[in-house]
Computed example of a mutant assay.
Amino acid sequence: MPIPSDFSSPSRMSAKERAYAQIQRWIIDGTLQPKEQLIDAELAEALGVSRTPIREALLLLEVQGLVEVHPGKATIVKDIDKDDILKLYPVFASLHALATEITTSLILPEQIEKLKMLNARFAESIENKQPYQAMEMDEQFHNLIVELSDNLYISSFSTTIQTHIRRFKYVFLKQHETSTYSSVQEHAAIIEAMEQSDPISASAIMKQNLLRPMNELYKLI
């Protein structure tokens, strides 16, 4: 099981949280491949923690559907099912379209400026061929809109679905960089619609922004 040694983890986290965050990232970015066996002793040594927080982290990842735990046998990274793309993205797009419609009526000028800043960083990450950072900037853009909608249910359901989408999204950003520039342009169009207080247009563009990569990614994988 190849584990990189040149990684950094956030400070002020418990051993379980640190293990969970790092293993999740390795699964998302492909360091830990689908169907790969996860050996808790090796993970514990790599992360500098005991085996207990590793096992706790793996149980959390099992709940998320990122790993499969077979007691007494093995724990493996869950395989990617291509058809899940067509199940996840439409629900995710509808949630974010609704959040965008709500937020357009509530957003303040300084929040508009923050969206512009995040989109600029997103574009810069793509230009610099930094797929993971680009994914994070894209997520921050979308998550801010969801947060500003002030709807706990949209936020909660969105977070759950996003966990699975991240694996597909990373493949898309890593292998199909040119198409992601369309997302930058769509983000700019969403911001413009918000500035014009046009919730219907903003919502429609947001939905397109998520359904377009769904179709491209399905063809790619």
Rank of each mutant, 00 (worst) to 15 (best):
Glu147Phe: 13
Gln175Ala: 06
Glu139Val: 05
Ile126Asn: 08
Arg121Glu: 15
Ala134Asp: 05
Ile102Val: 07
Asn128Gly: 01
Ile154Ser: 08
Ala188Tyr: 04
His176Lys: 08
Phe168Glu: 05
Ser125Asn: 11
Leu108Ile: 08
Tyr170Leu: 09
Phe168Asp: 07
Asp150Trp: 06
Ser158Ala: 12
Thr104Val: 05
Lys129Arg: 12
Ser156Phe: 11
Ser182Val: 11
Leu115Pro: 02
Met137Cys: 11
Ser105His: 08
Asn143Leu: 14
Ser155Val: 00
Phe168Ser: 02
Met135Asp: 11
Glu177Val: 12
Glu113Thr: 01
Gln130Tyr: 02
Ala134Gln: 07
Arg167Asn: 09
Tyr170Trp: 11
Thr160Asp: 13
Ala188Gln: 11
Val171Trp: 11
Ile102Glu: 03
Arg167Asp: 07
Gln111Asp: 10
Ile154Lys: 08
Ala134Cys: 03
Ile145Trp: 05
Gln130Gly: 01
Tyr153Glu: 10
Val171Cys: 07
Ala123Gly: 01
Glu177Asp: 08
Leu144Ala: 07
Ser156Cys: 10
Glu110His: 15
Thr100Gly: 01
Ile154Asn: 06
Ser149Asp: 03
Met137Gly: 00
Met137Val: 00
Ser105Gly: 03
Ile161Thr: 06
Ser149Glu: 04
Thr100Val: 01
Thr100Gln: 03
Gln130Met: 12
Glu110Pro: 06
